[in-house]
Design a protein around this nucleic acid. Structure first.
Lengths: 298, 298
DNA sequence: GTTAATACATGAATATAATGCATGTATAAA
DNA sequence: TTTATACATGCATTATATTCATGTATTAAC
């Protein structure tokens, strides 16, 4: 490592503010100091980061690339420092857990009880998957375990099967379709079908139903939106295909109904994703085992 | 930012080597200096990173979390510094491009010619998507554009449709199935079907074919392996469902054959993924436009 | 075309703090 | 008890980031 944090911050500040004087002000140092700092950084990595355009600075192409990394990486480090403060005065082992695709947390209180019984030294922290996608959060180490649907395999990510679920058609409560034992693709032909996804091309939803595993990547966009979808459906605005596990609470409270897809139903496997780099018997690994055990018993 | 690079490196070295003396040696400083450094870091973030277990050090739970970030982030910064050296003495705007899921690069030479004609100030650098997944590479800023199949929407990632492709059954050259105009799922019932995926459960492949969009997330695992798959198929070891665009070169060289799936065929849309944070008229954006134009004309 | 203002660079002095040396303390092994 | 190991601490040294004062180049103003 040739650059110091201050050099990465300098890149960020300069690219965002555009002039040395402004950036120096933002960084709380003098114009002179920042000029020295740029020179020092260029000396360290042996190449020009900026070039002069008139009397202003402009990033070189290579400088532009390294600046992108600064913009992406610094927030991660800052977040990590902030998280540390939260956890510094806690004595338990912290495991951060998120749920991919759906915001399904009704099962959490029960599971926390289970964890407290079986492994009192572990502390569960829920991470609302924010705007990032879950696998990326894992890789950035802003979460330790992600509960995810399907078999989305990714290098560097370890996959522990947890339980089998079912993709179901979700309808308004007591909707006419919901009285059938199961539905066929044809049943959807004449009713309005919503996916709540911005990028699905018109007409694709129907295909997605005949080949429903394809629904999985799309639902990734519906992060944190399950509640909103349920609201829309229970208000009679349409139907959707969702994971039964994820909408269980709403089904039990009779806000929506669900119907099996096809004669055989459509399986959906849920897994716990962890980093492969995780050490043996780490807190994360222990918690995954607890997840497996808990699903066996309940 | 309270911690310096040396503190993040310290966390990495200590977690990997386990003792102050060894880590200090690896960092090229004295045991005393590293002890001071730990104390300084703990003073800066106002909390214990390590606690003593006997006469050795152990990470506190909170220290363990922040160390994970160090392990994930430092390689990215190091990579960025190394990349800078490669690009430092180049005057062109560099755009790094990767292809998701498949290693399909036969079209690259033509496209580079097109770029040189239309935008001589842009330089294309190909990034073999290594072990990371492509979206994560985008977010880490180790690549600027990813050409990806399907509609995998992700927050923070911008999606520009490029062209329509087709999912096809890929068979050994002049295989009996390849003489049909198209195949139905039933045609696969009695022949061996390979997916070259580690995590697909036995029996799932067949389902994946009836609902082939589900194939997309699986292919994510076949990163950089397209050549290997083609070898296996052309050697008569099985068939697979792949993107026609990605295996075009092998079809034209008559190493394999392809057959349409179903009566209508199965569309697959390819898009260019970029970071939403990219500035207006950035080099990446210009190159995406060139990709769009190029696909229109050819 | 001269002057003024703006934006960044440079040199030297100062101030901050990281490091090494020598030594101390606590734990584990002999 | 003694010895060895692992880490901590105080102090002097050294390194270097910063500021201050000033210089140079570019753009704007009169």
């Amino acid at each position: 490592m040739k650059l110091e944090i201050r050099h990465w911050q300098m890149l960020k500040a300069l690219s965002e503010l555009g002039s040395i004087a402004q950036a120096a002000d933002a960084l709380g140092i003098s114009q002179s100091a920042l000029s020295h700092r740029i020179a020092e950084a260029e000396r360290r990595i042996d190449g020009k980061l900026f070039e002069k355009e008139g009397r202003r600075l402009k990033l070189t192409p290579a400088g532009s690339l390294i600046t992108k990394v600064a913009l992406q990486t610094l927030p991660i480090l800052e977040r990590a420092e902030a998280d540390f403060e939260q956890n510094a005065h806690l004595e338990k082992q912290i495991v951060r857990l998120g749920v991919a695709s759906y915001s399904s947390y009704y099962w959490i209180p029960d599971f926390i009880k289970f964890v407290n019984q079986k492994a009192g030294h572990l502390k569960l922290r829920l991470v609302a998957s924010t705007t990032q996608n879950p696998i990326s959060s894992l890789q950035h180490s802003s979460v330790d375990i992600v509960i995810a649907p399907g078999y989305l395999a990714t290098p560097g990510i370890f996959n522990t099967p947890l339980f089998m679920d079912e993709l179901v058609l979700v309808t308004p409560y007591a909707h006419s379709l919901s009285h059938q034992a199961f539905i066929n693709p044809e049943d959807l032909r004449d009713i309005q079908y919503y996916t709540y996804s911005q990028t699905v091309l018109p007409g694709f939803e129907y295909e997605r139903f005949i080949r429903p595993s394809g629904v999985i990547p799309h639902q990734v966009e519906v992060v944190e939106m399950t509640d909103a979808i349920i609201e829309l459906i229970s208000a009679g605005l349409g139907v959707s295909i969702l994971s039964k596990w994820a909408v269980n609470a709403a089904i039990e409270s009779q806000r929506i109904s669900s119907v099996q897809l096809g004669q055989k139903g459509l399986d959906l496997a849920w897994s716990a994703l962890t980093r492969e780099s995780e050490k043996k018997n780490s807190a994360s690994e222990q918690l995954v085992k607890l997840l497996v055990d808990w699903h066996k018993t309940s």
